[in-house]
Simulated scan of single mutants.
Amino acid sequence: MLGLEYQSKRGYIGLEYCRRMVGIKIMPVVVHMGQIESVLSLADKEWRVEELQQQFEGETVLLGVDDMDIFKGINMKLLAMEHMLSQYPNWQGRAVLVQIANPARGRGRGLHAIQTEIQASCERINEQFEQPGYEPIGVSGSESSSDSNLPKKSMLVVSAFIGCSPSLSGAIRINPWNVESEALNDAISMAEVKKQLRHEKHYRYVSTHDVAYWSRSFM
Rank of each mutant, 00 (worst) to 15 (best):
T60H: 09
A113K: 09
S146E: 04
D66P: 06
L85Q: 01
E127G: 04
V98M: 01
Y134C: 03
L62A: 15
M155D: 03
L97T: 12
E143P: 08
V61G: 03
I125C: 03
D147T: 07
S140F: 08
V157M: 02
I100E: 03
A95Q: 02
M155A: 09
S121E: 10
R109Y: 12
P151M: 06
E143D: 05
I137T: 09
K45M: 11
F129R: 00
S41V: 08
A104C: 12
P89K: 06
D66L: 06
S38G: 13
S86P: 02
Q115V: 04
Q54A: 03
K72Q: 12
L52F: 07
K45W: 02
N126L: 04
S146L: 03
L42C: 06
F56A: 00
R48M: 07
E82I: 05
M84I: 13
A95N: 06
D67A: 12
G93R: 00
L78C: 13
R105I: 14
V49D: 08
C122V: 15
E123D: 15
M76G: 07
K153M: 00
F56P: 10
L52V: 13
R48L: 05
G110T: 04
A43M: 05
I118E: 08
Q115H: 10
P103W: 03
K77Y: 05
Q92R: 14
C122T: 08
H112R: 09
V98I: 15
R124M: 05
G141H: 05
S41K: 10
S41C: 13
E130H: 12
E127I: 04
Q115N: 12
L63G: 01
K45P: 01
V65P: 02
D67T: 10
S145Q: 11
K153R: 10
S144N: 11
Q87K: 13
P136H: 02
S140L: 09
A101T: 15
M84Q: 02
M68V: 08
R107Y: 12
F56C: 00
A104V: 12
S121I: 08
L62H: 03
P151Y: 01
D147W: 01
A95V: 14
E51C: 08
K72P: 08
N102D: 11
G93V: 08
V49S: 04
I70M: 13
G64N: 15
S41D: 07
L79P: 02
S140D: 04
R124W: 04
S145K: 08
E135R: 10
E82W: 05
M155Q: 09
A120C: 11
P89L: 01
N126W: 13
M76Q: 15
P103N: 00
S144M: 06
M81R: 02
S38E: 03
L62W: 01
N90P: 05
V157G: 15
S154Q: 10
Q119L: 15
L62N: 07
V65K: 01
Q54H: 06
S142Y: 11
V96D: 09
N149M: 04
G133M: 04
G110K: 13
A101W: 04
L79W: 11
L150W: 00
Q54V: 13
L150T: 09
V96M: 02
L156D: 00
V98S: 00
N75Q: 12
M68Q: 05
N126Q: 05
P136F: 03
